[in-house]
Every structure is written in structure tokens, then in C-alpha cells.
């Protein structure tokens, strides 16, 4: 895809997937990749930022003798998702109106 996805949109995408269920890094990336061609190295920086802003928290679970970190939405994460979603709707409507169909 030639269009670079803005960070805010990527953050909203991650939050939206995590809203369905808490996931660990690999599963999260694969789930997003089903719809959107992001690279495997995209997810970590986003998760780090979301965690830093308290929009997600992590819960460690032991799996196969290692510790898997599951990321899950916080209340402020829910709120942020709502706002980002509204912003995106507005933005995409504006672009769609300008672009029309060709």
C-alpha cells in the first residue's frame, strides 16, 4: 500500500482489535495483518506508546515456560478509541467527498 498510515489511526486500529480481546504481540500483529498490510515491526512501537499513555495495560501469563504479555484496553483507552474513531470518520468522509469516484 502506497499510503502511509498515520500513527493516530494505527493506534486506534490496535485499540479496536484489543477491545475485542486482550492479545499478545504476535497474535495482535497477525490479526491486524488479516485486514491491513502492516509490517511485523510496526506493532511494538505502537504498543509501547499506548502503554506509556496508559491507554493499554499489560498482564503477564506464563505460557510454555515463558512469560507472555497480554495487552488490554484501559478506560482511557476506550475513550481515546472513541475520539480517534470519530476523527477518522470525519476525515475519511471529507477525503471521500473530495475524491468522489473515478
Amino acid at each position: 500500500m502506497a499510503i502511509r498510515i498515520p500513527n493516530r489511526v494505527l493506534e486506534a486500529v490496535v485499540l479496536s482489535v484489543l477491545k475485542e480481546e486482550p492479545l499478545y504481540g504476535y497474535a495482535l500483529t497477525k490479526k491486524i495483518q488479516l485486514q491491513l498490510p502492516i509490517s511485523d515491526s510496526t506493532t511494538y512501537p505502537i504498543l509501547r506508546r499506548l502503554e506509556q499513555k496508559d491507554l493499554v495495560t499489560t498482564r503477564s501469563k506464563v505460557f510454555a515456560e515463558r512469560v507472555r504479555k497480554y495487552y488490554e484496553l484501559t478506560d482511557s483507552g476506550q475513550l481515546y478509541l472513541k475520539e480517534a474513531c470519530a476523527d477518522w470518520q470525519l476525515f475519511s468522509n471529507q477525503i471521500n467527498a473530495l475524491l468522489g469516484e473515478h
Binding site: 499478545y24 504481540g25 504476535y26 511494538y44 515463558r66 512469560v67 507472555r68
Partner: peptide, 14 residues
Amino acid sequence: ENIIEYYRNYLADG
């Protein structure tokens, strides 16, 4: 450490 831990699990999970 965070990064290494993340990618260690990433490689193992994948």
C-alpha cells in the same frame, strides 16, 4: 530489556 523480551516472545509465538 522490554524490546528483547517482546521480540523473544514474538519469534517463539510465530
